[in-house]
Amino acid sequence: MSALLELRGVTVRYRLHGARQAPLTAVDDVSFGLDAGEMLGLVGESGCGKSTLGRAILRLVPLASGEIHWDGDRVDALGAGAFRRLRSELQYVFQDPNACLDPRMTIAQSVAEPLRALMPALDARQRTQRVLQLLSEAGLQAEFGARYPHQLSGGQLQRAVIARALVPDPRFVVFDEPVSALDVSVQGQIVNLLAGIRRGRGLAGLFISHNLAVVASLCERVMVMFRGRIVETATSAALIAAPLHPYTRALLDAVPSLDPGERARALRRRVLPVADGTPVSAAGCAYALRCPLAVSRCRTERPAPVPAGAGREVACHRAAEWPAGLPAGAPS
């Protein structure tokens, strides 16, 4: 067992309002492994359960079933106190930098907070020093430490949030859509900062995003998630060049092209009616309702992830029919 982090059959359910309703399965039987120093991408649309999966690893939501192994040990069954000792190794960067810093604390206080609990050996002077060191690693001058969150721009706030996540020297960080709340011109700065930090520290991580292009610039390997299930796992390059799952194809088609020549094609694009949200039978493929390639088997039988060569996995009954990947444009 060489993986640093391993998830086996992780399932998370939310109880909905009105106890009579069946609980909502946000993460459904997800298994994957992640090596030390690896940055794994996780893409999918909002509500597909990708943030819930990240939260479940950090125990911000409870598991319904499944196991989480960290560094060879099973950690999902640990008591709260024992798990708190692990918090210095596992950290989380939240999506909205405006919301995840306490508005009544200075940046330095927020960044220093994990040190109090996770590195109690440090004295006040060492703490200050460590905070300044981390702020500078995240590209913030020391003077920002004395400011309050509302006095910083979105990009600066996200740097502060990254500094706070790195302050206890973690080995694994969940990056939950760290750039999607930022201005386009600033997104690249944060992605490049993360790439640098990752190289410098040999940091492992789970990078969650809805934009495949962003994920591809940071991660070698990407998982595609739909309605709580991982539908395809592949290297970024292979995924972009030859997507095997129809949903991956749809995600790729959604990445905007700025090529003026493709404008005409996009404008002629057939306007697809939206799926009306009818729940698919739990037995079938979650994507069957929206899938232009679905056959009757897809509606009754749930496809399991199967190896598709070169470390790839895909959960689609028909994937074997297009071993070279699905071509661009809406398949018919």
């Binding site: 939260r55 911000l60 708190r84 918090r87 989380y92 927020s110 994990p114 109090r116 949030v161």
Partner: peptide
């Protein structure tokens, strides 16, 4: 949640 992750 960030504070919880920070071990508070």
């Amino acid at each position: 949640e960030a504070a919880i992750v920070g071990g508070a």
